[in-house]
Structure formats: C-alpha cells, structure tokens
C-alpha cells in the first residue's frame, strides 16, 4: 500500500495546537512542582486506563531526534509497552530502544528504571488517579482548596488507618510524597520502592492523567519526601532473595508462578536491567538451570 492511500497524521499524532496547549500545561507544572495543572485532554486512539495521559505528554514533547523507550511494570515486552512504542514508531517515526541509557524519553507505567536516570532524560508517567487525597475526600472542589491552603492532615489520616489496621504503613504503591516542601503528590501507582529515586533526580519527571485531565511534574534536582510518622518511618520494600535470572540484589522483583505445585521465582521487574546484567555474565540460581538444559 502506498503512503498516499493512508490518512496522514501530523507528527506524533496530535495536531500542533493541541501540543502547544499541552506544552503550556507542562511548563506550568514544571514551574510549580507537584501542582496538578488541568488541561484539555484529548480522545486518543486507545481506551482510558491504557496511558492516554502519558501518551499525550509524550506526543507533546517528542522531537524527531528523540529516542523513545516505553515500559509497563518495568518490562519492555508487555502489551501496553509494545503497543505504545509501535504507536509512536508509526505516527512519529522516531527511534525506539529498550535500553534505559540510550533513551531520551521514557514513558512508564508503574515503575522507574533501576538504572539511574541522567540529565537530559525525561520520564513520563501514566497516571490513573492524580489526586492523592481522593481516597478520603471525594469532592474535587474541596481537595483543590486543601492543596491551595496546604491542609494535608488528611493524608496522615490515611497512613494512620494503615497502621491501625495492619500494624505498619501498608500502602505499597502510589505512596504519597511531598514535593519541594509544598505540594503533596501521588507518584502514580509506582511501588514505594521507587519513591527514593524521585528525590533529587537528574531527569525531568512528567505525569499525565488523561481521564482526569491533569498534568503535573517534578523538575530535576527537586526534593521529594515520602510522608510518614516519627515512630513509623517510611521504608521501601525489601526482598530476601536476589533475582533468579541475573542475581541482582536491591532491585524490585516480580513474582512469577512456575507450576501448579507452588513453584515460583522472583525476577527483576526491570527487564532491560536484567538482560544487561545477564549479558555481563551475572547469573541467578535459575539461570544456571536454563544453561544446563541447553
């Protein structure tokens, strides 16, 4: 089929006026770290919940020379990641990669890559519910007022409930943070394991919520502090075993069920990180089995 038969899209799908509107929202978000900027979210050729917010942010900042990486739960090879990557290859014809280091823009759902991000890189988060106070306060008018007046006692009510019910802070993802000592922000459903990576990051972090029509940002070198109690300090998840494939420790692991007799293994959720370690010769206990079988 020749290209003339196809409907031609503008570069990166969105029209220039829309991109301009989104860029304005992004600039405002960067100027006020952690503040949720409303924007006129567009219909995208995918359902809400699949990353329409992240896709719009990526489309607005993408240039022809950018190198794009898309991850879903840390993996480059899951449906969401594959289809969004293919989408931008088609509508923007940009270079794509799975390597964290080579990417200039990384769109993510639920994870921050294990490899430390550097200056010049941009991390775009897909956000389902941008409002950290929503769980306890359903009124948008009221939550906006609470943000404006810095009334964040309610956030601690949620953490109090956690401890009262479970004996410890049981929130493991979307763990609320305070940005630059001012706005309380929901870091999207990333595991709290990744919260410390947001603090003083060299990379720009942008958050897009398509259904809720909000964009917010954490500029580079910004203070991001996880909320906690004096006698129940913030802690990240720990794993008692290393990755079964690459033997990495102090990384976030996914549990994979192997059979119906209780067999399971824990592997890096960041597939790029895992592959890189494997090719560098690191081996976990299940990786040896695989080689022996071959």
């Amino acid at each position: 089929m020749s290209t003339a038969d196809l409907a031609t899209y503008n570069f990166a799908y969105l029209d220039e006026q829309t991109k301009r509107m989104i860029r304005r929202a992004i600039l405002k978000a960067i100027a006020i770290p952690g503040y949720q900027v409303p924007f006129a979210s567009r219909e995208m050729p995918m359902p809400y919940g699949w990353g329409t917010g992240g896709v719009q942010v990526t489309a607005a900042i993408l240039g022809p020379k950018d190198v794009l990486k898309v991850i879903d739960q840390g993996a480059d090879d899951t449906t969401n990641a594959v289809s969004i990557r293919a989408f931008f290859q088609k509508v923007a014809n940009v270079a794509v990669t799975t390597k964290t280091r080579e990417a200039t823009i990384i769109q993510t759902r639920h994870r921050i890559p294990e490899e430390r991000l550097t200056a010049g890189q941009t991390l775009v988060y897909q956000v389902p519910i941008p409002e950290p106070l929503r769980f306890l306060e359903p009124r948008e008018t009221e939550t906006r007022k609470m943000h404006a007046l810095e009334e964040y006692g309610l956030m601690h009510v949620k953490l109090y409930e956690d401890i009262a019910r479970n004996g410890h802070i049981a929130t493991t993802y979307a763990y609320p943070v305070k940005v630059e000592g001012r706005y309380v922000m929901d870091p999207s459903p990333t595991p709290k394991f990744d919260n410390p990576k947001m603090h003083m990051s060299e990379a720009l972090q942008l958050f897009g919520a398509g259904r809720e029509k909000r964009i917010y940002a954490v500029p580079p070198h910004t203070e991001v502090v996880s909320l906690d109690f004096e006698d129940h300090p913030f802690e990240i998840q720990t794993f008692d075993k290393p990755c079964a494939l690459c033997g990495a420790e102090n990384v976030y692991l996914d549990e994979v069920v192997l059979d119906d007799r209780g067999g399971r293994m824990f592997v890096c959720s960041d597939t790029d990180h895992c592959e890189e370690r494997c090719s560098a010769g690191h081996r976990g206990h299940l990786a040896y089995d695989k080689e022996a079988a071959e």
């Binding site: 306890l136 009334e151 009510v157 949620k158 109090y160 409930e161 401890i163 109690f229 004096e230 006698d231």
Partner: peptide
Amino acid sequence: VSAGANVGERLMAVGERHY
C-alpha cells in the same frame, strides 16, 4: 475511617506526626 483516626484527624492537621 476508624474512631481513632476520626479523633486524631485534627491533631494531624495541626502537625502532630507521632503515631
């Protein structure tokens, strides 16, 4: 939210951070 959190909310709102 629990009775304890209901009573504690005002304390947390004025900056009490010790569970």
